[in-house]
Nucleic acid binder design. Structure first.
Length: 571
RNA sequence: GCGCCUGUAGUGAAGGGGUUAUCACCUGAGGUUUCCAACCUCAUGUCCCGGGUUCAAAUCCCGGCGGGCGCACCA
């Protein structure tokens, strides 16, 4: 078995066993889309359930769910419409593709604002040549829209919308509700799992770059002046870090999380905490911890909203692949939505340590005088008086918002000293976002679990899935489907399936060895075999997938252990 | 999107203008079998799609779609 062929054998197995398959294949297939088959769909569900439990068990994180279709203005505010609508042009000679606005950067003050005709003209008139081959032969610029576009409504009055490119915006839309839910106290977080859509130019590498994919994102809202810290000193694992090559500590290193934070490689204490919890999650799913690393983004490749970004990369058949992005998005999203939407409540309140006293000298308006004199203008005058930054001695000329000027006399105002007490202030929370690519994680779970061994000189395949993500918890096999063994096995299967959150399979087809082999190949961790002895004393054998070891026990004990989730302790 | 390679049962492969397209494994039915892909009999199932050349195309040509690799792209 040569290693070069391993991925092909793995892919063939995934297809043959109904785990991962190309989508729409009976219509010729469609690149960038996959199906999870009957076995794969259960693995996917369990990975997502693990993810939800992992975060909601923190206590200050809740799950929400939002639409996948997102109206245009939301994605304008988030920056996706701008970022995802770049105009591309190609060199007619060397076929290199470039962003047209970047080519025009030095000859135009604001190339991003140009439409395709305008930017074509700029490239032509300014004699912009290809950075690659120096030719001047640009194809007409075309928008490279990485969002799937759609419209809401029919006929007239349709509204532009897109399939969401990330689930995150849903959490920002619900910020006011989340703030109330958490009794107006930071920090808190919200998670969402679901589909995201990006119209990739060329999907590649199987399920690594999909056009429709499973995402799982967490938005954790914090007070930037009081970021939550978690003591990481008792975590001794050495983690592989690749820091920002432009930073001060740029050498790849192995450190525990606490030291990485202390040495300033991880800049933010809350980000450090999420890196650690991400590591816990992946290892808990059965990802090989030696093949996980954290890579810090260079400042130049940082997302448009982020101040500090880490990728969690996992190594597999496709090399090192970004599977989780952990970003400090700062206040960008909430500020943008506050600016673009009608809501002014995308903020949090922070108490001062002690209330701040403010003393202000003002000219209080005597409305009983101003009203009759100025009539319709009176309101504007009261506002203008309130906005005065220095105390003027009446009479004086007061400039109003509409540009007109009125004369204020002494009887119209009363100088006053106003003392106010300010208990705190409103601010825009910062957001730490761990964003998980579920399909990529599932690929690496399968990759790391896929084990090609030998058994009696024959090739033998075992999918060593963690119990938490196995497609079924256990398989029940009658040694032969006769002499009452089949009936006992069917009854036992039903009994186990009635246990909450436990899934049992039944298989009576072909020889026992073949059934073990099939179960091993899709990663079912345990098998119960009903044999002749069972018909006499209701004892069964329990077989462990990973070493094929078997023990005998009573059905009652097996069900008891299974319910408690500690079947392994019987061995 | 460009270039090179490529597409035959569920999986992996052979064949390469001319009867009914071949093999292994898998899957199903039956038999056999007292725990690890055993064996026997039988069965289901395939030339990616569309044009063209030809008396005849799974085979040759063109285009599309899918896959692999490289370039480009990848908040």
């Amino acid at each position: 078995m040569s290693d070069a062929q391993r991925m092909e054998r793995l892919s063939a197995m995934l297809k043959r066993r109904g785990i991962i398959l190309p989508a729409f294949e009976i219509y010729g297939g469609l690149s960038g889309f996959i199906d999870y088959g009957p076995v794969g769909a259960r693995i996917r569900r369990r990975v997502i359930e693990n993810w939800i439990n992992h975060w909601t068990s923190h206590g200050d994180i809740v799950e929400i769910n939002s639409p996948t279709i997102t109206p245009h203005p939301v994605l304008v505010a988030s920056g996706h419409v701008g970022e995802f609508n770049d105009l591309m042009t190609e060199c007619g000679k060397c076929t290199g593709a470039f962003r047209a606005d970047q080519l025009a950067e030095n000859v135009h003050p604001n190339p991003d604002s140009l439409n395709s005709d305008e930017i074509d003209a700029v490239l032509l008139n300014e004699n912009i040549s290809c950075p690659n081959c120096a030719e001047q032969a640009w194809t007409p610029a075309r928008p490279m829209n990485l969002m799937f576009s759609t419209t809401i409504g029919a006929m007239k009055s349709t509204r532009q919308a897109y399939m969401r490119p990330e689930t995150a915006q849903g959490m920002f839309m619900l910020y006011p509700s989340l703030y109330r839910h958490f009794r107006q106290k930071l920090p808190f977080g919200a998670i969402q799992t679901g589909k995201g859509y990006r119209n990739e130019i060329s999907p590649r590498q199987g399920m690594i770059r999909l056009r429709e994919f499973n995402m799982a994102e967490l938005e954790y809202f914090i007070d930037p002046e009081n970021p939550p810290t978690v003591d990481l000193t008792d975590r001794k694992e050495l983690i592989s870090f690749i820091p920002d090559p432009l930073g001060s500590n740029s050498d790849p290193c192995h450190l525990n999380f606490a030291n990485a934070l202390n040495e300033g490689i991880i800049k933010h204490p809350t980000v450090a905490w999420f890196l650690a919890r991400t590591w816990d999650f992946l290892v808990g799913l059965g990802i090989d911890s030696a093949r996980i690393r954290f890579r810090q983004h260079e400042s130049t490749e940082m997302a448009h909203y982020a101040s500090d970004c880490w990728d969690c990369e996992i190594h597999g058949e496709h090399g090192w692949i970004e599977c989780v992005g952990i970003a400090n998005r700062t206040c960008h999203d909430l500020q943008q939505h506050e600016a673009h939407s009608t809501s002014k409540s995308l903020r949090a309140w922070r108490d001062f340590e002690s209330p701040r006293k403010e003393v202000r000298e003002v000219l209080a308006p005597n409305t009983a005088v101003i009203g009759p004199v100025f009539k319709g203008q009176a309101g504007a005058i009261v506002i203008a008086l309130g906005e005065l930054t220095e105390l003027l001695e009446p009479p004086f000329d007061l400039k109003l918002a509409d540009g007109s000027t009125v004369e204020i006399t002494a009887e119209m105002v009363t100088p006053k000293t106003i003392e106010t007490s300010v208990a705190g202030e409103w601010f825009t929370p910062h957001v730490i976002e761990p964003a998980f690519g579920i399909d990529r994680i599932i690929w690496h779970i399968l990759d790391h679990s896929y084990s090609e061994t030998e058994k009696s000189g024959e090739e033998y395949t075992v999918l060593r899935l963690a119990e938490s993500v196995a497609p079924s918890d256990i398989i029940i096999l009658p040694l032969f489907d006769k002499d009452g063994m089949g009936e006992i096995a069917r009854k036992l299967t039903n009994q186990i399936n009635s246990i909450r959150m436990i899934k049992a399979e039944f298989d009576n087809s072909r020889s026992i060895g073949r059934r073990y082999a099939r179960a091993d190949e899709i990663g079912i961790p345990w098998a119960i075999t009903v044999d002749h002895t069972t018909t006499e004393d209701l004892s069964v054998t329990i077989r462990r997938r990973d070493d094929q070891k078997q023990i005998r026990s009573t059905i009652d004990d097996v069900i008891d252990s299974l319910t408690k989730g500690n079947l392994g302790s019987m061995f």
